[in-house]
């Protein structure tokens, strides 16, 4: 089973398991406070997702520095690249880059790699040296979110006009 294999490989990225925060006593006043304060952004780590609900199996949140290592693991395990995209978490002042991987064989396993970066200086390393097919996906993500892919061979607008200096999928974008 590739699922168990890749799970073991990916969990080697997280030597220290994330400490589970102790459950707070749920008094009535506390609950009201909880509703008001937004939940903190997710910590790095590997999660197993229910496939029938979410449509993918493994969900790894990593730091940008671990990206090349994680993608190399998937490349070695013969995953193909499905897509790369971004999500703007403006409330956390963060941008998220999401990488989707899947397989050609019948050993179904969808893996999502995500990394969060600061919204003001969004830079992640490129994976075009591992997957040449990431080229357009990264250019598109740069178009839409302004995320810079460090080391990308040709980071010019792909879908937007060649002189575009705006990033339409940022939540504070005004047309």
């Amino acid at each position: 089973m590739i699922y168990e294999k890749i799970k073991t490989t990916l969990s080697s990225l997280f030597p220290d398991p994330v400490p589970v925060p102790p459950e707070e006593e749920s008094a009535g006043d506390d609950q009201e406070k909880k509703v008001k304060s937004p939940p903190p952004p997710r910590q790095d780590g590997l999660l197993e997702r229910e496939y029938s609900v979410h449509g993918y199996h493994l969900d790894a949140q990593i730091s940008p520095a671990q990206l090349i290592a994680a993608v190399t693991m998937l490349d070695d395990a013969e995953f193909f690249i499905e897509s790369i995209t971004g999500v703007d978490w403006i409330k956390d002042n963060q941008l998220e880059v999401v990488y989707d991987f899947s397989r050609y064989d019948f050993d179904l396993c969808r893996v999502v790699i995500r990394t969060r970066i600061d919204r003001q200086s969004p830079v992640v390393p490129t994976i075009t040296s591992i997957y040449p097919g990431a080229n357009w996906h990264e250019r598109e993500t740069h178009d839409f979110f302004g995320i810079k892919f460090d080391g990308h061979p040709n980071l010019i607008p792909l879908l937007l006009p060649e002189d575009a200096d705006f990033h339409p999928l940022l939540k504070d974008f005004k047309a």
Binding site: E78, F80, I81, E82, S83, Y104, Y131, P132
Partner: peptide
């Protein structure tokens, strides 16, 4: 090459 680019359909 198909894998590196994520090709599908009749191309793959």
């Amino acid at each position: 090459m198909c894998r590196k680019y994520g090709a599908s359909s009749a191309v793959a």
